[in-house]
Nucleic acid binder design. Structure first.
Length: 255
DNA sequence: ATGGCTACTCCTAGTAGA
């Protein structure tokens, strides 16, 4: 079974690339972030033509998440506790083939010390509390998404330049650590110890070409799924070519 | 030496992303 996550940065713009990638990669379940469309505009038909059903939790312009699967999906949650109808669309959880899939689009935080930064840290606190209240590490659960946090020095192209900056500040790294401490394994690190394995590169400055990337998109696995993890790959070729997202997909293969 | 983009919107400028 292949589980994938990809911040597509607008599913409308990225649909040709997304459909080509799905046809080639054939993942069983896919978590998408930054779809940037309301649910009535979600491109169900184009995905159904490839054999994918979709659950969408979107809004216009900003945020938006969706889960695609080649089999029945049952929705579990589309918001954290206490969030109203006007909340940013950043979470979607579903059951698929006996697995719980939690798709998250972590807040960016804009700048360390800003209101958005405080929101980001609080959002992670609420995410962990929701996991504590609704799931157990003994169950097969995958948390996938754009977390907007690079956990370690080896996940950043220039850690000294980035230290203390947004996505790499100590409180954000602590939030990532607290999330993992629920009982997850960082799936990529089950298979690879090397640095330079990035999932996002700034559109500006020829960052991709220069290798200026960060690893901020993650697939976290509960112990029963970590035990089945056979490989995790970053499809960095998807960052190349015409109209790429600024993120590459991450694909975990489970035995 | 710096910064160099992309996508969105009641669209041609401002906001947001990361």
């Amino acid at each position: 079974m292949k589980i994938a996550t990809w911040n597509v940065n607008s599913i409308r713009i990225r649909l040709p690339r997304l459909t080509a990638w799905l046809a080639r990669r054939q993942p069983d379940v896919v978590c998408l972030q930054e779809t940037k469309v309301s649910d009535d505009e979600f491109p169900h038909a184009a995905l159904a033509a490839l054999g994918y059903r979709a659950l969408a939790n979107g809004q216009r312009t900003y945020n938006g998440v969706a889960i695609l699967a080649r089999d029945e999906l049952e929705e579990v949650a589309r918001a954290l506790p206490g969030e109203g109808d006007d909340a940013q669309r950043r979470l979607l959880a579903a059951e698929f083939a006996g697995l719980r899939i939690v798709n998250v689009y972590g807040p960016n935080g804009q700048e360390v010390g800003s209101d958005k930064y405080a929101f980001k840290l609080d959002w992670y606190r609420r995410l962990r509390a929701w996991l504590d209240a609704t799931a157990r590490p003994e169950q097969p659960l995958a948390l996938c998404g754009d977390l907007n946090i690079a956990p370690e020095d080896r996940d950043v192209w220039d850690p000294e330049k980035w230290r203390g900056q947004i996505m790499f500040s100590d409180p954000e790294r602590a939030a990532f650590h607290d999330l993992v401490a629920w009982g997850f394994q960082d799936s990529l690190r089950l298979h690879r110890e090397d640095g330079g394995l990035f999932t996002w590169w700034d559109y500006r400055a020829g960052a991709f070409h220069r290798g200026w990337g960060l690893r901020i998109d993650h697939i976290l696995l509960s112990p029963p799924l970590a035990a089945r993890s056979a490989a995790v790959e970053i499809d960095r070729d998807e960052r190349k070519g015409e109209k790429p997202s600024d993120h590459a997909p991450v694909v975990a293969t489970l035995q």
